[in-house]
């Protein structure tokens, strides 16, 4: 791809200047406000804000729910991607388009409708509650909405990889006497694994920061079903800005780490291209 090294085209200064100004005002200054507010706390204050039993419960709930949800998303998303790429079934085009709906549907609507469906009197709840599965206002509900917002990432990461998969090596493997399962394990799986892991990481990162849908479906009880994002909001509403900011900094650090990991993973999954 040719790149212009000499700046012949007009508008370099203007466009870069505007970009930098915009990013400074909207991203850099607010981020600095968050970090500097946290840095003003003494280590003892910071520790007291970040490491309370309530906060620790919130982190571990957020991390474990997001992890479980990302695992479910990875499995479900892989199966959906496989079916969409490899098989034919009625209304396939519509199902394919539907995968993107969680991106387009406001999370508040998702939270509202899921909590209504899974309460004991709801459409799904009335069958699941007798079985002892209570999803509304429980940890299970948190995982459920995290899967809803997460699985499209896996499908959309995996789909192009599956489509570009080299069919000939599969055929060769079959011809050389490998069983269908062996072909999958040794030929197909290694080349789609980076995609699955990338999708998993994207779903996990998205679930870590999710707020809108979870506030609807979780009972948000401190120490029990309160995720980190809800904790930040609750602290803000109690006007405990320092504590809220400290917890937010923990969340920010986690999301930066995820961003770095995802960048790595995307490079890894692209190594099979070209």
């Amino acid at each position: 791809m040719p790149q212009v090294n000499q700046r012949v085209l007009p508008g370099f200064r203007l466009s870069l200047g505007f970009t930098m100004l915009y990013l400074t005002v909207l991203v850099a200054v607010p981020l600095a406000a968050c970090f500097i507010t946290t840095a003003r706390l003494t280590p003892a204050q910071f520790g007291a804000a970040v490491w309370t039993p309530r906060a620790v419960a919130a982190y571990s709930l957020t991390a474990s729910a997001a992890f479980l949800a990302a695992c479910i998303s990875a499995i479900l998303g892989s199966l959906i991607a496989w079916a969409l790429v490899r098989y034919d079934f009625p209304l396939k085009r519509y199902f394919d388009a539907m995968v993107d709906l969680p991106f387009a549907l406001p999370t508040a609507v998702a939270g509202l409708v899921f909590s209504t469906l899974y309460v004991p009197s709801g459409l799904f709840g009335r069958f699941l509650t007798p079985l002892g599965i209570e999803l509304a206002y429980s940890r299970g509900g948190i995982i459920l909405v995290m899967v809803f917002i997460g699985f499209p990432f896996v499908v959309r990461t995996l789909q192009p990889i599956l489509e570009s998969l080299d069919r000939e090596s599969e055929e060769a493997s079959l011809m050389l006497g490998a069983s269908r399962w062996q072909t999958f394990r040794h030929v197909i799986f290694p080349s789609i694994l980076p995609g699955i892991v990338t999708g998993f990481a994207l779903a996990f990162a998205r679930a870590l920061g999710e707020y809108g849908s979870i506030v609807f479906i979780s009972s948000n009880i401190p120490g029990q079903s309160e995720i980190a994002a809800v904790l930040v909001v609750n602290k803000l509403e109690e006007f405990q800005y320092a504590e809220a900011t400290a917890v937010a900094t923990v969340l920010l650090t986690a999301s930066f780490a995820m961003l770095a990991i995802i960048n790595r993973l995307e490079r890894w999954s692209r190594r099979w291209d070209s």
Binding site: L23, V29, C34, G209, A248, F256, N263
Partner: peptide, 29 residues
């Protein structure tokens, strides 16, 4: 710069809101 543009995707919306409260709230910057 490209990575920096992606940052808002990684940041939890709640944390984003908090940053603006820290800037424009009555005790903010």
């Amino acid at each position: 710069l490209v990575t920096f543009i992606d940052l808002p995707f990684a940041i939890s919306p709640v944390v984003a809101g908090l940053m603006f409260v820290l800037l424009f709230g009555s005790s903010g910057w």
